[in-house]
Measured scan of single mutants.
Amino acid sequence: MLDDRARMEAAKKEKVEQILAEFQLQEEDLKKVMRRMQKEMDRGLRLETHEEASVKMLPTYVRSTPEGSEVGDFLSLDLGGTNFRVMLVKVGEGEEGQWSVKTKHQMYSIPEDAMTGTAEMLFDYISECISDFLDKHQMKHKKLPLGFTFSFPVRHEDIDKGILLNWTKGFKASGAEGNNVVGLLRDAIKRRGDFEMDVVAMVNDTVATMISCYYEDHQCEVGMIVGTGCNACYMEEMQNVELVEGDEGRMCVNTEWGAFGDSGELDEFLLEYDRLVDESSANPGQQLYEKLIGGKYMGELVRLVLLRLVDENLLFHGEASEQLRTRGAFETRFVSQVESDTGDRKQIYNILSTLGLRPSTTDCDIVRRACESVSTRAAHMCSAGLAGVINRMRESRSEDVMRITVGVDGSVYKLHPSFKERFHASVRRLTPSCEITFIESEEGSGRGAALVSAVACKKACMLGQ
C-alpha cells in the first residue's frame, strides 16, 4: 500500500517536472537572447534605426563620474514606483581627507489618484512632500541643488532636461508624456511658492545606482535594477552614441532593455503563462523582457503555473481556492519566502493557508518547484541581457580580458534567497573573457542622484555659470 502511494507521488512529481521543464533555458538559448539583445542595442544607438529599435539606448548626458572633490548639501528625489523618497545628502571631506556622503531620508507613498490623475496632481503632491521634508529638517530658507531620480523612459536633451516617452509600472498621470519632466517639477514648486529649489540633474535609477557604486569602486561602469521592473545602464564610447554629437570619451546610456521583445525577438521563448500575464497587464505587448524578470510579474506567473497544475490534477487534489483564482493573489514576496523555507515546509504551508488552501507535504514541495522554475528562468533571462552589455563593452574597448564592476539594486536581487547566485553564475558562463565584480548599492537611487548633481554643480562652477 505504502509502495503504491510512494509510486503515485513519484509519478505525480515526474509529471510536474515535465510541465515545469518549459521554463528551462539551455545555454544556447541564452546565447541567442544575448546576441539578439546586442543587435537591438546597436539599432538603438544608431541614428537611422533608433526610432524602430525596441531597446532605445537613451543617452543620459552623464559623462563624468564623481571624483571626490564636490562638497555641499544636496536634496535628492526618487520616483520610480508607488513609494517616493526625499533625501538630504551631505557631501563633504571625511576623516583623513576621505570623501564622505551622509544621508537623511523619508519615504512617502503615492496615492492612487496622483498616479493615475493628471501630471499637475502628481507633481503638486511631490512638491508637497518636499515642503514637508524641508519643514522637518528646518531647511526651507536654503535654496538647495536638487537631483531627481526618475525611473521611467526619458529622452534627455541635457542633464536637466528630459522628455517622458511613456509611463510604465502602473503610472498613468495624463499630460506628462511628451513633456519635460524637470519643467513639470519646477512648475509645481513655483505653484507652491513656499520654498526654492535648483533642479540641476535628472537621472534614471540605473544611472543613480551606477554612480553610487562608483563611489565604492571606481571600476563600476554598469548599473542595473532588478526590482519591480528590470533595466540597466553602462558607459558607452561616445563615438557609438549617434544621437549625441561628439566622439570623445564616454557617456552613460540608459538601455531601457525592459522593452526588448516588443518587436518579436522573444516570441519563441514566451510561454502561455507569459501571454496571460501580458494580456492582463496595463501595457499589453510592451516591456516583454521586463515581464519575464521583474517583481511586478513574478508572483503572478507562479500563480498561473499553480492553476495549470491544479487543472492537471497534480496539486491540491485538483481544487483551487477562490483566493488562488484571484489575479495578483500570489505576491512576489511569497516566491522569495517559499524558496527561503528551511525544509520543514512550515513557511510554505503558512503562505498557502493564507490563500485558503490546506496543502499536503507533496503540495508544498511542488509549489516550491514552481517558484524555483519561474525565478530561475528570470535570473537566466536577466543574465543574457547583462552578458550582452558586458561583452559589447569588452569588444568596443578591444580588451582581451576586461575587469568590470556592476552596481545592482532592486528588491528581487536583494531579497530573493537564490536569485543573485543563479544570476551571477549564468552571467559568468556567458562572459568567459571578463572578470566581473557585483556590488549592491546602498540607498543607491538617492545618493547617486545627489552625486550626479554634485558633478553638475562642479561643472557649472568651472564653466562660470
Results as ranks from 00 to 15, higher is better:
360 S>D: 13
433 S>E: 09
31 K>T: 13
420 K>M: 11
409 D>A: 06
381 M>T: 05
206 T>S: 08
193 G>A: 05
101 V>S: 10
37 M>I: 09
7 R>S: 08
12 K>L: 12
307 L>G: 13
257 W>C: 08
175 G>C: 04
392 R>K: 13
420 K>R: 13
17 E>I: 12
343 G>Y: 07
282 A>K: 15
369 R>Q: 13
274 D>P: 05
217 D>H: 11
459 K>V: 02
442 E>I: 15
91 V>A: 10
33 V>Y: 01
157 E>R: 02
42 D>K: 14
196 E>P: 05
404 I>M: 13
63 R>D: 15
115 M>A: 04
295 G>F: 02
435 E>M: 09
190 K>Q: 05
122 L>S: 01
130 I>N: 01
9 E>C: 14
36 R>T: 09
431 T>Y: 10
425 A>L: 08
69 S>G: 14
165 L>D: 02
465 Q>D: 12
300 E>N: 12
105 H>A: 10
54 S>L: 04
30 L>P: 09
270 L>I: 12
411 S>A: 06
206 T>V: 00
248 E>G: 11
368 R>K: 09
285 G>A: 10
391 N>D: 07
416 H>V: 07
38 Q>M: 06
139 M>I: 07
291 K>P: 07
452 V>W: 04
64 S>Y: 15
183 G>C: 02
92 G>V: 06
413 Y>G: 03
329 A>H: 15
342 T>M: 10
241 V>E: 10
145 P>V: 14
399 E>W: 05
440 E>T: 09
34 M>A: 07
147 G>P: 06
211 I>V: 13
283 N>C: 07
27 E>V: 12
182 V>I: 05
184 L>A: 06
262 D>S: 12
168 T>M: 01
361 T>Q: 12
240 N>I: 08
352 L>K: 14
205 D>F: 07
410 G>A: 01
326 T>V: 14
113 D>M: 08
294 G>Q: 02
354 T>K: 11
109 S>F: 11
223 G>I: 03
299 G>Q: 06
70 E>V: 14
195 F>A: 02
185 L>D: 00
23 F>G: 07
118 T>L: 03
452 V>E: 09
255 T>P: 01
452 V>H: 05
106 Q>A: 10
452 V>R: 01
97 G>E: 12
258 G>E: 01
187 D>Q: 14
346 K>R: 13
61 Y>L: 03
12 K>A: 10
158 D>M: 04
367 V>R: 00
374 V>N: 07
431 T>N: 07
72 G>H: 08
235 M>G: 04
143 K>Y: 08
380 H>V: 12
215 Y>G: 15
137 H>F: 08
143 K>S: 05
350 N>Q: 08
189 I>P: 00
251 M>P: 15
325 R>S: 14
32 K>E: 13
440 E>M: 15
331 E>C: 05
287 Q>H: 12
25 L>M: 04
323 Q>M: 04
317 H>C: 15
332 T>K: 07
58 L>A: 01
290 E>Q: 00
146 L>E: 03
75 L>G: 08
104 K>E: 07
152 F>I: 01
328 G>K: 15
392 R>H: 14
58 L>Q: 02
65 T>D: 13
139 M>E: 02
245 E>L: 12
68 G>N: 13
365 D>V: 09
390 I>P: 06
348 I>K: 08
163 I>C: 01
87 M>Y: 15
421 E>Q: 12
422 R>Q: 13
295 G>M: 02
324 L>P: 05
176 A>D: 15
437 T>I: 10
49 T>W: 09
279 E>H: 14
5 R>M: 05
279 E>N: 15
308 R>Q: 07
436 I>M: 09
435 E>W: 12
181 V>D: 06
183 G>V: 03
214 Y>Q: 15
423 F>M: 12
368 R>H: 12
255 T>M: 01
48 E>R: 12
453 S>V: 06
367 V>E: 00
439 I>Q: 06
185 L>S: 00
77 L>W: 01
298 M>G: 11
405 T>G: 15
407 G>W: 02
122 L>W: 01
188 A>Y: 00
68 G>S: 14
375 S>Q: 05
402 M>T: 12
385 G>H: 01
215 Y>V: 15
85 R>Y: 06
316 F>P: 10
271 L>S: 15
88 L>K: 12
300 E>L: 06
433 S>V: 12
441 S>C: 14
381 M>D: 01
220 C>G: 14
33 V>C: 07
139 M>F: 05
426 S>A: 10
156 H>M: 15
291 K>R: 08
429 R>M: 10
116 T>V: 12
108 Y>K: 00
202 M>A: 06
106 Q>T: 07
142 K>F: 05
28 E>K: 09
342 T>W: 07
360 S>G: 11
239 Q>G: 14
435 E>N: 12
115 M>Y: 14
416 H>S: 07
154 V>K: 01
280 S>I: 14
232 A>G: 04
407 G>M: 05
309 L>S: 07
87 M>L: 03
386 L>W: 12
282 A>P: 10
411 S>W: 01
165 L>N: 03
323 Q>N: 08
438 F>L: 07
429 R>I: 15
180 N>S: 01
204 N>H: 04
314 L>D: 12
75 L>M: 14
289 Y>H: 14
282 A>D: 15
409 D>V: 01
308 R>A: 06
406 V>Q: 04
41 M>D: 00
417 P>W: 08
136 K>H: 12
18 Q>S: 07
176 A>E: 07
246 G>S: 10
367 V>S: 10
281 S>P: 05
203 V>T: 01
371 C>R: 05
368 R>G: 08
190 K>A: 14
207 V>E: 00
464 G>M: 09
144 L>K: 03
298 M>R: 01
419 F>H: 02
432 P>C: 13
215 Y>L: 12
331 E>W: 01
130 I>A: 04
31 K>G: 06
133 F>W: 02
169 K>N: 07
47 L>S: 12
49 T>D: 12
239 Q>W: 13
406 V>F: 01
73 D>I: 08
260 F>T: 01
64 S>M: 15
37 M>Q: 00
142 K>N: 09
186 R>T: 04
252 C>K: 04
100 S>Y: 10
369 R>K: 04
423 F>G: 05
187 D>S: 15
407 G>E: 00
175 G>M: 00
9 E>Y: 13
440 E>Q: 10
250 R>H: 15
